[in-house]
Simulated scan of single mutants.
Amino acid sequence: MSSNPQLVEYRGSCHCGAFKFKLKAPELKEALRCTCSICARNGYLWTYPWPSRENFTVVQGDVNTTLTSYLWGHKMMAHKFCPTCGTSVMEDKMPHSTVVGAPDFAINIRTLEDVDFDSLRVEIFDGATLLPGSPHPTVEPVKNADGTTLYTGNCHCGALEYTLLNPEKITNATLCNCSICWRDAALWVYPQTTAVTFKNPDAAVEYTFANKECHHGFVTGFGEDAV
Rank of each mutant, 00 (worst) to 15 (best):
A31Y: 00
N166H: 13
K22S: 14
T171Q: 00
H216Y: 14
S88T: 11
P135R: 09
K169P: 01
R110H: 11
D104E: 13
P5V: 08
N154R: 14
P51T: 08
N172H: 12
V100L: 14
L32D: 11
P95K: 10
S88W: 00
N177V: 11
P103D: 10
R110Y: 11
A78E: 06
L187Q: 15
V219M: 06
I170T: 00
G17M: 02
C155I: 12
E9W: 07
P49G: 02
Y70P: 01
P135D: 10
G158C: 12
T111K: 02
T66S: 04
T47C: 07
S2F: 13
L187H: 15
H216T: 04
M77I: 08
G147F: 01
N55S: 07
V89I: 15
T35R: 01
F19Q: 01
V63S: 00
L150Y: 04
M77N: 03
V115T: 05
E224N: 15
P201M: 09
A25N: 09
P51C: 07
D118N: 13
H156P: 05
L150M: 07
C82R: 04
K22R: 14
C16A: 12
K80G: 05
H136Y: 13
P83Y: 12
R110V: 06
E140C: 10
C178I: 06
A185N: 12
F81T: 02
V139W: 04
K169C: 03
D104M: 04
Y190P: 02
F125K: 00
T57H: 12
V58T: 07
E206I: 00
Q6I: 15
D114Q: 12
L7A: 11
N200T: 09
C214P: 01
S97T: 13
A128S: 11
E113P: 08
G221T: 11
I170S: 02
G61W: 07
D62T: 08
Q60N: 06
W72G: 08
K212E: 13
T47I: 15
G153Q: 09
L67I: 06
D184A: 10
D118I: 04
K199F: 13
K169H: 08
L131M: 13
A18F: 08
V142W: 06
L165A: 02
A128I: 03
K24F: 11
Y207F: 06
C36S: 10
G223T: 04
E27F: 02
T66C: 03
L23A: 03
